[in-house]
Design a protein around this nucleic acid. Sequence first.
RNA 1: GGGCGCAUAGCUCAGUAGGUAGAGCAACGGCCUUUUAAGCCGUGGGUCGCAGGUUCGAUUCCUGCUGCGCUCACCA
Length: 499
Amino acid sequence: MSQEELGKSLNEIIKHRLEKLSMIRKLGYNPYQYVFNRTHSCKSILENYDDLKESVDVSVAGRLMSVRRMGRASFAHIQDQSGRLQIYIQENKVGKTQYKLFSYLDIGDIIGVTGKVFKTKTGETTVFVEKLEILTKNIRPLPVVKEKEGKVFDAFTDKEQRYRQREVDLNVNPHVRDIFVLRSKIIGWTRDFFVEHGYLEVETPILQPVYGGAAARPFKTYYNALDQVYYLRIALEIYLKRLIVGGYEKVFEIGKTFRNEGIDRNHNPEFTLLEFYETYVDYYYMMDFVEKYFKYIASKVGKSTYRFEGHDIDIMKKFNRVKLFDLLNGEIGEDLYKADVAKLRKICDERNIEYKPEWERGKLIDELFKEFVEPKLIQPTFVMDYPVEISPFAKPARDGREGIVERFELFIGGQEFANSFSELNDPLDQRSRMERQKRLKDKGDEEATDIDKDFLVAMEYGMPPTGGVGIGMDRVVMLFTEQKSIRDVIFFPQLRSLE
RNA sequence: GGGCGCAUAGCUCAGUAGGUAGAGCAACGGCCUUUUAAGCCGUGGGUCGCAGGUUCGAUUCCUGCUGCGCUCACCA
């Protein structure tokens, strides 16, 4: 045991379990077994009762979750990944030694049983144990959650403990396990969707000498062998586009990215981003494609409407498409497209929106948009055509509107879900945009990025016309699993370490 | 970072208008061969998050700290 300070009660429980551990060894059993040959899962026994009943020997293993001892016979539930199953063990049936073994078991132990399937008086499918094996002895008490008629008693609910010790949460709160199963499926369906559309899945560097592709503060690290400061990536953009330059026509990556920013219900500093790039298409094409993607996932999940951020979101309905300035002008009551910085500041002042003196046109517009428009975008809505200043990787609008780029963001429930451009492939324009970013950074903008020379060289070789999209997968999972907090769709959300 | 709230047994929670704490479950001992929040009898288990202050006396009041939650800011 470690030297950690334990309460007496916990210490006592652990002491008792260690004693049982040695008693089990004395009985001749290895409490940490190597293998167990299962013939069934808990669920498959429940589902195939008619074929199995009182004829076939089944072997099933799982964690002991409840025990009801009645002298020389006992009932218990074991739980495996598929679900819970009742077992019944009688001293007459298994003999004194194995019943003794059973008497040393605790909730949390992992056991294997073999026997025939029957139904109890009350109709519950149960395995009548003929042979019992201990596979792993538990020595630390698991919270005991009881249930009757759908009511849960003494549920393990402390959020901090649930996140810090997710393994406990997963064991005692089966619905939590279900959420993560659905997460895994959603990621898998996402992969299927892109592969089916001819995309190549790729992996690009997480450790980068120059970070870019988004506006965010990075995590810094140090690369000993190179004697250089490195950064954890904040986006996938840069390297994926270099692969497009390399000749791949459709690529996607699903991977962790890192932003050194606040943690809240909607943000985890380490999060899963999906980005995909396709050649010879623009952001109009990508709008259709993104909508298709969301509908594809919804159809796989099997529902049209999802409860998210307090609203019923209908994914199967046609997504709205609106231009940023149409929305914003409608909300403010003036034409902001033509407004200069002075005018925008005045509007902010009138509406009590704070701004920093160094903010220029694009940033001010973005701020007003976030404040007055975003929260109202509940049903899926593509917002199109953003100011160039806040979109350093997007192509200028082809219709020549000054200061506008071909970019859309998808909003659902007032939250940003996707960000997409007709990707900028003019190397000179790209260079001047990066130089501008660099100037902002030098002036103290912590979210601006350095010039990525390798990327600019790649652009000079020529990137075909390309549409690109980024989608925050954790939010997608939140939407489709109807979770209110990002922490409930990430196994181990970021918490401050103790000590 | 600001505001509000929470922190008591392994789990879920009471409680003390200041006199060092209770319940249910879990644990331990006993009875019990179709139970299912099994039941019955009995027993043990707490530096009341941490550190100070006020007080004869603090788990309770005050201050600071730590952790977590909600919220605002931040997050194209």
